[in-house]
Write a protein that binds this DNA or RNA. Structure first.
Length: 714
DNA sequence: AACCCGGAAGCCTC
DNA sequence: TGAGGCTTCCGGGT
């Protein structure tokens, strides 16, 4: 698609260069609308221009920690700044600024051949917020109802400052694809309209909108080949618009990560796209624009882009709905409504979050809508990781600032539970009894994966970790209630017991794993296993004490426990501007907190943060390739070194001979072996170097081997 | 299908 | 180097 866009652009450039002003920068009409001369080549920007641009970015991307004085330089100097330089000046927003600059640069380049009056679409291809538009006197976006003649490129050259001219020029811009192929995204005055409507959806409406958005996708996909060019089929767009307008009122687009990509300047897209084994030529997509293909491939592109393309504006996730049914759709809304969001990004969120191809409203299901054969791994692929945030299929989630240093699962869960931003992901079902519910397991897993740098984290794995807590009475499962768990003790109790039990007792998971382990063999273990029963008044542990506290002291206690107090504020982390939070040294935080309780929390070190561009193997999963999202473990070496030893093989053959009569696993098969064999099977999409195996089993063979007795061994 | 369970073994960090 | 704390995978159950 990107290739197409690029091609389209070139084509259009050729077409229009003769009809549009050839001096090629923008018409005076256009310039009038510019904040200073930001459409001039950046090299020519004055110091003042740079300041204006920074201001614009601050405003447009809600960048909290950008100090104008840090950018007192002219355009040339600005261009010399690399991402790190930006980050030095603005730790939190540097990457965004850098990205914005690159985008701006690329856009200017592409605009040189196209009179494009609708300047200052933000660098990600989205229209500016109304306030920004007003402030910078940016013309409104074109409306698709304009007649097709209005869009003719020549119109741009002759029409004055009019909507038609704007539309004509805009149709040459990548953002046009977004606008006209997704007419429902046309800003209807305040961008926040969406959210209001969305928020008040009743269930029926939600169903309707889901159906509608499914249709939308089909329609959009069916016209994708035309909308991929810079000269979109307006007619189809209009038709599409009509088809959508009913649902538009309540549910703005459930579409397309492609928006962002399409909106990217082609040059950027092009330059950032690196060939991967999985990326097929874009041109093929046009020929066969199946929804499935497009979707998956686009996701691949996105993943690739993470490596090189600056991140989109940061958003903070934070749903506040506590309804178990609150889907991400609502959660997104809650994000938007949440006044505690540190970044003033809601207005953009309101638009952007609803444009993702895999709107979390459909978390998981969406893939199936689009792709009946969707692989489980596709889910992983659609989760894109940044250094401290995730684009979880369109829902941008931030690592909880409070959990920056947290590497312990139960602590992490606790932090999320205490953070209202994550209410739609995990929340207290019963605060007093410390019963909590996981609402969106996959999101929770993604967050945990981000936290631990295990980008292939799944709820399956996360829950395994939680199950280990059963044994030492940190967490228990609420019987027969899905996704409902309970903290058995307060954080300090857990810590206390962990401290006391030391390395020889119940925190040794290897011991816990042994059946011979008896939790009551030591006083510590007894204490550890003192089950907190919130209904039992006899509970004298501090759990009771803890849970009887009002929520505010609890928050404070937790904040202290987790060292998440800002030295300068007593507000809860959700209310803490992450920008601010990142500005002080967490070491200071530790100094301000109970050091004993944070012993497990390593001090903050920004170097330890996995940067988007430098995800190493130690990050467990290198996002440079979708495949690597599966795991950072070296499967090849695993399979090599673990490949059936003779004894194992014998066991295998012995046991597998009885396998044919039963689909159930035979315990006679050494688990390690079956695990390893299946292990390989589980990474079908990985470029395993199976040839390195002497036996040269294919992955499928390995699986087969487990079921069918290998003749060679027999 | 999604969730749940616990064994087994490996990985990573400290 | 060993311990802690998972992570990954599994077969099986609900």
């Amino acid at each position: 698609m990107l290739m197409v866009a690029h091609t389209g652009n070139s084509t259009m450039t050729t077409t229009t260069s003769t009809t549009l002003p050839t001096n090629n920068y923008l018409s005076s009409t256009v310039k009038m609308n510019l904040p200073q001369n930001l459409l001039h080549p950046i090299d020519f920007w004055s110091k003042h221009d740079v300041q204006k641009w920074i201001e614009y970015c601050i405003d447009e991307y809600s960048l909290g920690d950008v100090n104008l004085s840090d950018f007192e330089m002219n355009g040339k100097a600005l261009l010399l700044l690399n991402e790190d330089n930006f980050k030095q000046r603005s730790p939190r927003s540097g990457d965004i600024l850098h990205k914005a600059l690159q985008q701006h640069k690329a856009m200017l380049k592409s605009w040189q051949c196209q009179a494009f009056p609708y300047q200052l679409w933000n660098s990600f291809g989205f229209p500016p917020s109304p306030s920004t538009a007003r402030r910078y006197n940016i013309p409104p976006p074109p409306h698709p109802s304009l007649s097709i003649s209005s869009f003719h490129p020549t119109a741009a050259g002759v029409l004055p400052h009019s909507a038609a001219a704007a539309a004509a020029a805009a149709c040459m811009h990548p953002a046009f694809n977004y606008i006209f192929s997704r007419p429902e995204t046309i800003p209807k005055s305040p961008l926040m309209n969406h959210q209001t409507n969305y928020f008040h959806l009743n269930q029926q409406q939600q169903q309707q909108q889901q159906q509608q958005s499914t249709r939308n996708r089909e329609i959009s996909a069916s016209s994708s080949s035309s909308t991929s060019s810079y000269c979109p089929d307006v007619t189809s767009a209009k038709i599409s618009h009509k088809l959508h307008e009913k649902s538009d009122a309540i549910h703005p687009v459930n579409e397309s990560m492609g928006i962002k990509r399409e909106a990217l300047s082609p040059s950027i897209q092009q330059s950032n796209r690196q060939p991967t084994p999985n990326s097929s030529p874009r041109t093929t997509r046009i020929i066969s624009p199946s929804i499935k293909q497009e979707n998956i491939d686009d996701e691949d592109v996105d993943i690739e882009q993470h490596e090189t393309v600056p991140t989109p504006p940061i958003t903070s996730s934070s749903p506040s709905s506590s309804s178990p049914q609150s889907s991400s759709g609502l959660s997104k809304l809650n994000i938007l409504n949440n006044q505690t969001i540190p970044f003033k990004i809601r207005s953009q969120l309101s638009t952007r979050m609803k444009h993702q191809p895999n709107d979390v409203t459909n978390t998981g299901e969406n893939n199936h809508d689009l792709d009946g054969n969707s692989l489980a791994n596709d889910n992983t692929r659609q989760i894109r990781y940044f250094h401290d945030r995730i684009d979880f299929r369109g829902d941008i989630l931030m690592k909880p600032p409070a959990a920056k240093n947290c590497r312990i699962l139960w602590e992490f869960l606790y932090i999320l539970l205490e953070d209202s931003h994550y209410e739609s992901i995990i929340h207290w079902e019963n605060r007093e009894k410390m019963i909590f519910r996981i609402i969106q397991a996959d999101k929770l897993a993604a967050l945990w994966g981000l936290q631990k740098n295990r980008l292939s984290m799944t709820y399956e794995k996360l829950s395994r970790g939680m199950r280990y807590y059963y044994s030492n009475n940190i967490i228990s499962k609420e019987q027969s209630k899905r996704l409902l768990y309970r903290f058995m003790r307060s954080p300090d109790e857990i810590r206390k017991s962990m401290k006391r039990t030391g390395s020889t007792t119940n925190m040794v998971y290897s011991n816990l794993n042994k059946k011979s382990y008896q939790p009551t063999t030591s006083p510590d273990a007894q204490e550890t296993n003192l089950k907190y029963n919130p209904n039992n008044d006899d509970n004298s542990s501090s759990s009771t004490h803890f849970t009887n506290q009002s929520s505010t002291p609890i928050h404070h206690q937790l904040l202290q426990l987790f060292s998440i107090y800002s030295p300068s504020t007593t507000s809860m982390v959700p209310n803490l501007n992450p920008n601010t939070a990142l500005l002080y040294s967490p070491r200071n935080v530790n100094n301000n907190s109970i050091s004993s309780s944070s012993s497990n929390i390593p001090s903050f070190d920004t170097k330890s943060l996995p940067l988007l561009t430098t995800i190493s193997k130690s990050d467990r999963s290198n996002s440079s390739s979708p495949d690597s999202f599966d795991s950072g473990r070296d499967r090849t070496s695993d399979s090599e070194k673990q490949h059936c030893s003779p004894s194992q093989s014998l066991s295998s053959s012995t046991s597998t001979s009885s396998y044919s009569t039963s689909t159930k696993r035979k315990q006679a098969v050494p688990l390690s072996l079956t695990a390893r064999l299946s292990h390989q099977h589980h990474h079908l999409d990985q470029p395993l170097n199976l040839a390195a195996n002497k036996d040269e089993h294919t992955i499928g063979d390995c699986k087969k081997q487990k079921v069918i007795s290998p003749p060679s061994i027999a």
